[in-house]
């Protein structure tokens, strides 16, 4: 665990969605054990950034290094095997697989049966509602439960770093609080490194070590969570003041 080299280093990342270039050269870093937020308005390119880092979207330029490996030209499954795993936004669970099967798919890259069973129990302890619903199809869960499933599923791969896309989107506020609490308390205690993409800037910055502000494909501001929460520009644009 070297403090010097960042776990994830993004330099001049350019990315397109279809024909349109969405990211025009994004630079950001995430160090081991940090929680870093990427905030910005709808359409700023936050989700595109994550899809690019997961190598699902094509990279047009720049360089991405993760854990000492250049992942710019890798395939999505190779990135997952290196331990960089995304929790996709909204309903990207498998709707007609059971909750348990969804979790098993999270462990797709692993072969250690006993370890997977142990991690399944750990996932159920993290979100007990998933244990009650384990035989139900994923699509029958509520929005908040689906989000919990998506987080638990990503953890099943034993990632080194999680990238979470809008965990608060379309979820009842009480569940948002619960999910953020879990992320902060449990995952941070485990030393999990997290890149968190959020529109809910207030909640995200409060639990983050550092943050970046993304505007129309460019990073316009960066600082610690506290600095950004106090920044007048952030307050005006994202905290509704």
């Amino acid at each position: 665990m070297s403090a010097a080299a960042p776990l994830l280093k993004v330099e001049g990342l350019k990315c397109a969605y279809g024909q349109a270039e969405i990211l025009h050269g994004v630079d950001l870093q995430v160090r081991q054990g940090e929680i870093v937020s990427l905030i910005g308005a709808n359409g700023a390119g936050k989700s595109t950034t994550l899809m690019c880092l997961s190598r699902v979207n094509r990279v047009r330029g720049g360089r991405v290094t993760f854990d000492g490996h250049d992942i710019t030209g890798m395939r999505p499954e190779q990135v997952v095997r290196l331990g960089l795993v995304q929790v996709p936004e909204g309903r990207r669970i498998f709707p007609r697989l059971t909750v348990r099967e969804n979790l098993e798919m999270g462990a797709f890259i692993r072969r250690d049966r006993d370890g997977i069973e142990a991690d399944l129990r750990r996932a159920y302890d993290l979100f007990p509602i998933l244990r009650d619903r384990s035989a139900q199809q994923g699509g029958t869960l509520s929005g908040g439960e689906q989000q919990m499933l998506a987080i638990a599923r990503a953890l099943m791969s034993r990632p080194k770093m999680l990238m979470m896309d809008e965990p608060s989107m379309g979820i009842a506020p009480i569940l948002v609080a619960k999910i953020f609490e879990t992320v902060r308390d449990v995952l941070r205690a485990q030393g999990m490194t997290i890149l968190l993409v959020e529109q809910n800037a207030n909640a995200a910055l409060r639990m983050s070590d550092r943050g970046y502000v993304l505007e129309t494909g460019n990073i316009v501001l960066t600082g610690t969570g506290q600095e950004l929460l106090g920044d007048p520009r952030v307050r005006a644009a994202y905290l509704g003041e």
């Binding site: 999505p76 499954e77 997952v80 795993v85 990207r92 709707p95 798919m105 797709f108 890259i109 791969s157």
Partner: peptide
């Protein structure tokens, strides 16, 4: 059911 999510799980 969801090829993108499958990719994100490391499925080729």
């Amino acid at each position: 059911q969801n090829p993108t999510a499958a990719q994100l799980m490391g499925i080729d």
